[in-house]
Amino acid sequence: MGSQKLKIRSSLVWSGGTAILFGILVLVLLLMWGLNPTRFLKISNIQSMAFQLPELGLLSFAMMVAMISGGTNLSIISTANLSGIVAALIMQAAQKSGTLAPGIITAYAILAAIAASAIIGLLNGFLIAYIEVPPMLATLGTMIFLNGISVSLTRGYVISGFPEDFLFIGNGLVLGIPMPIILFAAAAALIALLFDYTPYGFELYMLGTNPVATRYAGVNNRKILMKTYLLSGVLCGLAAIIMISRFNSAKSDYGASYLLVTMLAAVLGGVSVYGGSGKVSGIVLSLIILQLLSSGLNLLRANAFFTRVVWGVVLILVMIINRISSYIKDRG
């Protein structure tokens, strides 16, 4: 137990896995820079990457927390889209009535998206913790259910036209730094603190490692699961706010291709598919690696499928390196 605790507490500190990821990041950075010496890592290029990373990043966090608990959350994209649509409908109604200031409409929209995603998160948590449906099936169910609601609310159309204040969240710059990346950094820091310095964080990792032992240790597993899927849902809500602001519109199928990519980011970042391990710093590094690869290859005008090939290769490489390094560890 002692070593487990040590491991958990190190999520803000360097460790073997993180060092390997960091090494890969540096190599990718140099490779991309070498291939696009005049265009890569210019201010505008860094800014564009900082606009792109957060929506996928927050969704990856949502996937990560579910995976650490030993489950998964297949409903992240549909949660984000439904929360976005709810916020969009509220903004649309408020703008039509014309009595509210744009700042207040924006605040309502944010609250609405967070509230909707929290309710969905609790629903997932309830199904998994109390009805004891396996997470994959429970969230598959809610994924289809939520997507159905989104399509019927919008009839498949786009809801668009938000106030300037709201658009700032996804498109604005603060001292040259894109607003989405600031929100992402804040969320990352909060999750890291939650994992490292609260009883919830400790119990979450315990639950993911061995639910039976955790229960015998006097932990209320159900409560932990409820909190975990609530957190996962709210992260989707945050992603939704950024996404609909960036597109100035909400729709039932935005980001539909992100679901497996969030799993890729989580696994690449060192989250175990069996639960119980994974760190915020690892995910952040893996997201940066994926973003550098995709933007760098776009600059090289590589085929989009080639980017997928490279992502896959990097994942496989990291798995192999991790295996070898743990082999060396075991022997030495």
Binding site: R39, K42, S44, N45, Q47, S48, M49, F51, Q52, E55, M243, R246, F247, K251, D253, Y254, G255, A256, S257, Y258, S294, S295, N298, L299, A304
Partner: peptide, 14 residues
């Protein structure tokens, strides 16, 4: 996916 198309255009702008 509209989201992917936006990303590609952002990269082209940069």
């Amino acid at each position: 996916d509209p989201a992917q198309q936006v990303r590609i255009i952002e990269d082209l702008i940069s």
